[in-house]
Design a protein around this nucleic acid. Structure first.
Lengths: 133, 133
DNA sequence: TGTGTTATGTTATATAGTAACATTGACAAA
DNA sequence: TTTGTCAATGTTACTATATAACATAACACA
């Protein structure tokens, strides 16, 4: 067999790092299939799951897709801004945001495990483009 | 020009209001099919979309499901806390959160249209239950 | 060598969401 | 009353997203 080590994980991570936009599992599958026709969805989802656990990628819940994490390790909440025009995602790690969320959780006694913070709209580049056109 | 039967919308909203947990489109479909065997997914999705536009329900992106909005109109960001134990969702409208997000957007020149803020973990009730058991 | 673990392969299916076009029923203008 | 319009829903068929369950392969290491 061809599978050595964590080949798929590495391939997936590499792809996501090079993509300017979030990719769905099936986007990734289609890409990697050109090298390995046998690839099937479960393999992709496993790799995505492992990478997510390691904090190397983030899932963009609102679009069922994934992006590479562009920071190193971060415990603070990641804020993803998704441009509905160009499809780009900007990641931002914001301490004051984490703080607000921590406070809110504390007040209600909620034990946080995972946070999803996504903002949809138009990025500054695309706003400029709109104005100019 | 108003005044037409939005029966499905009302049925869907009613269901969601009575549900202690978020419901998926197909959960809703299954329920409403007991009264109307002809119901099909598009009708449900249209009703959900209309209700979302009106701000009467929220979509929980992380679980592909929907909950009734338990506040009246609110412009401020809604923070949804989803308990992975009991499945319950608590909605909270938090001004300081909105402020942080507004600030972040301003700094990057991002034009916000929609915000998704979801926290996954264990609610206070379930935390207590865990300790007791 | 054999035993446990992790990653992947394979088959099949479950769940979620939408495109495209047809039909219905209320209402109002003709 | 008839006709035209519009929003809501019905209908068919499909695409997209995700997972269950079991099989196989490679590796670590006692």
């Amino acid at each position: 067999m061809r599978g050595q080590g964590k080949q798929t994980q590495q391939d997936v991570l590499e792809l996501l790092k090079q993509s300017p936009k979030p990719m769905t599992a099936y986007d990734i599958l289609a890409e990697l299939k050109t090298d390995n026709a046998k690839l099937a969805p479960p393999t992709i989802y496993r790799a995505l799951s492992a990478l997510t656990d390691q904090g190397l990628i983030h899932r963009v819940e609102g679009v069922n897709a994934f992006v590479a994490c562009c920071h190193g390790d971060h415990d603070a909440a990641a804020l993803l801004s998704i441009c509905e025009d160009c499809g780009g995602v900007e990641e931002r790690v914001d301490d004051s945001l984490s703080k607000v969320l921590r406070t809110a959780a504390k007040q209600t006694g909620f034990k946080t495990k995972r946070q999803v913070i996504e903002i949809y709209g138009v990025c500054s580049d695309c706003v400029s483009a709109e104005v100019t056109s």
